[in-house]
Design a protein around this nucleic acid. Sequence first.
RNA 1: GCGCCUGUAGCUCAGUUGGAUAGAGUGUCAGUUUCCGAAACUGAAGGUCACAGGUUCGAUUCCUGUCAGGCGCGCCA
Length: 586
Amino acid sequence: MKDRLKSIIEHSLTALIEQGKLPPLDLPEVKVERTKDKSHGDFACNIAMVLARSAKMNPRQIASLLVDSFSDVDFITAVEIAGPGFINFTLSSDTTQQIVKEVLDKADQFGRSTIGQGKSVQVEFVSANPTGPLHVGHGRGAAFGSAVSSLLKEAGFSVHREYYVNDAGRQMDILATSVWLRYLEACGQQLVFPSNGYRGAYVFDIAAQLKNEFGDKFVKSVGDVFTDIPDDEPQGGDKELHIDALIAKANTLLGEAAYREVFNAGLTSILSDIRADLSDFGSDYDEWFSERSLMESGVVDQVIEQLKQADMLYQEQGAWWFKSTEFGDEKDRVVVRDNGQTTYFASDIAYHLNKYQRGFDTVIDVWGSDHHGYIPRVKASLAAMQQDTERLKVLLVQFAVLYRGSEKVAMSTRSGEFVTLRELREEVGRDAARFFYVLRSADQHMDFDLELAKSQSNDNPVYYVQYAHARVCSVFRQLTERGMSWDKAAGEAELNKLVASHEQDLLTMLARYPEVIESAATNYTPHLVAHYLMDLARDFHTYYNAHQFIIDDVALSQARLTLIAAVRQVITNGLTVLGVSAPEVM
RNA sequence: GCGCCUGUAGCUCAGUUGGAUAGAGUGUCAGUUUCCGAAACUGAAGGUCACAGGUUCGAUUCCUGUCAGGCGCGCCA
């Protein structure tokens, strides 16, 4: 509808210029927007005010010329000039009413558009290191990432959801060593656990599993393990040096093959836990991409070679540095350490190049906002390889600050003091958790009060929306119980009976849904959908309290039932986009 | 110190890319069931849009500065 109005206005403008009634001028994009106040009609256009300056004319005068030149169209009943020069359009009630038919015809397709033109988008989200279970901080990225993916799909993009598995690197070695040390303890040995190791309960579980499966295969004497290891921090040493030495010792004592077995035990256990967790949370993926595969296939080395050839790397103090400052980064970044190991950043360059080479039109990274400083160097690396950095979009998600009542909860994976995503899901439910996460815009800090979410979960807005859906279902159940039925065709033929103000509000609300989806998709803002659903639910509840649906006037009754059937459909569609269920009974 | 983000009702947050009288939830107060589900509805109260300038027909929105908070600034990931 916006587009139709737009083209009418554009035609009139060009006609007026040709007729010499308006001076020749460059036409800006015509914007037609929904009004926020009903008294201003359904749509408004501000073009007259926008043009006033360049045309050197009074905006109301321009508006008046435009309005006079509009040809009559059947779907508009009133065109008015208001305020400083707005042109307000009022739709015919017949046009407004037909949205019900459209919703029911398109059903779960209602809201789909083709603005994505089938272009391919890759969305990478969560990608937490497999060094421990997902915690509530990851939940927001999971809910946001999959909601954005669903939105893009609705908008006509071809979407590929991906999880980047950091199954290589130092953090994984720390995990492997932590598992091994816990295993040694499980085998009856006494030791002082490194302060920088992973202390979570799941490490004990993996160690116990290891012992079950392999017996004493990996047992070495603790005396040997801690020989020639520099002091840990509590003993006045450096915790990083301490843990690195332990990793090296694990490698030499166990040998490469056995070390790899311990390493993989930790990796596969945690990764399968993460996969199950995300799946249960309703965040599904098309691909799990392994960092190790990039290293083992030599892609990382190739990329480094490519950058060397392009004179983008230089050697200093034994390390290889990437000249990211030449592309706007604050400082140059190391890609190969002096000990010969490639950095995480080197893998990431290779990974992003790989994404580009797979041919995605747009590559989206969903990152925690604490990684924002990372954006310039990744973009720099792509620029250095003559890639179009505009294809990469990084969406930052602020972490939810967790509260227990009024007390802030300290979060640390290493110390094992965190609330897992699984715990959250079990306590507040998947629907409430997902809805809560996407209720706020992603770039906004969010306070997540566990006590509130747990103890007063009935106050969560998700129930308000779901209840509206269940209520519609309930009406149809009631209808059946009374031996009556809903006749869709009859209802659609009687839509002109829907003239009450509550009905008009609902009709307008339904018509807005595709616009909301489009806006939410193009701006990567799923919270708009959550807010829309709350608005729609409110209008429905208000309507419910003001009018009866099952009444003696058969024609009106069928029209109303048809309307609320459409409401039910749109609630279902919207909740589905957010990964939230639409229960028939609550 | 530098960079990015944020500052809107008591609290948690929206605000249609610069538009008309700044909104919702929650909390507080006052009401609504012989009626399809009261997990609902109606009404009231609640604001110097952090502060000060600037840009223009018009600013919560854009620019500058100040103040306050968060995050980042490793041969970690």
